[in-house]
Computed example of a mutant assay.
Amino acid sequence: MEISVRSGDTFDYYSRLFKIPLRLIMDSNSNTILTKIKPADKIHIPGYASVPYAVREGDTFEKIAVRSGIEIDALFLLNQSKDANHLMVSEKIFVPEKVMVPFGTTETPLDYKRLVKFIKYLKRTYPFIEVSKIGSSVLGNSIDEIRIGKGEKKIHMNASFHANEWITTMVLMNLLNRYLLAITNGLLIRGKEPLALYEGVELSIVPMVNPDGVDLVLNGPPNHLRKDLIEINEGSEDFIHWKANIRGIDLNNQFPANWDICRKNKKPKSPAPRDFPGIEPLTEPEAVAIADLTEKNLFHLVLAFHTQGEEFYWGYEGLEPAESEVLAKELEKVSGYRAIRYVNSHAGYKDWFIQKYQKPGITLELGRGINPLPLSQFPSILKRAEEIFLTAITY
């Protein structure tokens, strides 16, 4: 919610008026010179929406404020051009409303365009988050990172490496949304103050690594690539099980962690709906974007959200640190997912991260069934994923 500064207003006053931590207000206005705010400056108040309201017979600012559960000066602040002593029936004013429920639907898959809309809503409502482009897909879609928190402990999570695992984007975005609600509403997280987590953890999220592939699965092929994609798809026009990026390369087989072994072991030797690792590591812009992001940051932990199997993998060739086992046992306990240390797999993002940095990396396999998992599983998947998410940010 955006407001205009009045003479004498301060950030501290806005914090008390709207019951929002001062740190969040300051971080939401980091481009403003905090010591020199002046009348008419535009200021963002996180966790609020400005809701239109039609004045009713007998309404006064005081009555509206009481009915809305807000301070009367919040109404004055948001309606500075109005004559509060002469409200007219049907006149439109604006009421600040605390955001208390998650945004979006859990009944419609998130394709790239819907994801962009979701991210824009979160940035508008929670302007203390940072949204940045870390790269572009083959077709030029932006691969975005959402960053929240200012702490020294840096955690990265990503989703939809694989196109037919698009439900992971929904899961991760909903978990982020719930986390933001907890922070702005002061809801305890595993007994911890949310502001303390915000100040102690820097969370990096890339909700859709493979936007072209997700759109292919959900919306079908773009016209100019239709013929080529059908050929890669062995003549089929059904792309529901497609796993690769738009060029038929499996992004989670693209990382330089024994990539040669991966290429030798994988059956496809040319572009395919799944499993082809490419002609060499890190040829695909989506994989490069994630690798570059990881190399530029000293993440202490990474979690890659995949489906399916109700299990997770946490080791790679004995290079994982001792703390990985401690974390794995806790995640197994809270989620009910089976913790697996080693699998005969190479060239994945988690493999590369552990090999390169010797820090905890985890590949999550949410849900059970055949990909893409049906939306009917979403509530149960989200519930168990939330336990994993909360454990990761609080451990």
Rank of each mutant, 00 (worst) to 15 (best):
E386C: 00
I167A: 01
H241F: 08
H300C: 09
G200C: 09
P96S: 13
I183D: 00
V51F: 07
Q308A: 15
A291N: 11
N210D: 12
K150P: 01
Q377F: 02
I93K: 00
L195R: 05
L382G: 01
F276C: 04
A163P: 11
M100D: 08
I37D: 04
Q355M: 15
V99Q: 14
T60D: 08
I393E: 09
E57I: 10
R341P: 02
G367E: 02
S380T: 12
M88D: 05
L229G: 07
F76D: 05
E317P: 11
R247I: 04
T169G: 00
M173S: 03
L225P: 01
E152F: 02
L203I: 12
Y342G: 05
V209D: 10
Y121M: 06
P194Y: 04
F118S: 00
R263H: 15
L197G: 01
R384G: 02
T35D: 14
T283L: 13
T307S: 15
P374Y: 11
V101W: 03
I25K: 09
N85W: 10
V131L: 12
T294P: 06
K120M: 11
H224K: 09
K267D: 13
T184G: 06
D27Q: 15
H44F: 11
R56M: 10
K266H: 08
P46M: 03
L115C: 05
Y48H: 01
G8N: 08
Y395L: 06
V343F: 15
I155S: 08
G69D: 07
Q308K: 09
L366C: 15
N344W: 12
N158F: 06
F239C: 02
F255H: 10
S68L: 02
T108Y: 10
N85L: 14
N158I: 02
A392K: 01
G367Y: 00
W166A: 00
N79C: 04
E280L: 12
R114I: 03
D59Q: 11
P281S: 11
Y121G: 00
G309C: 07
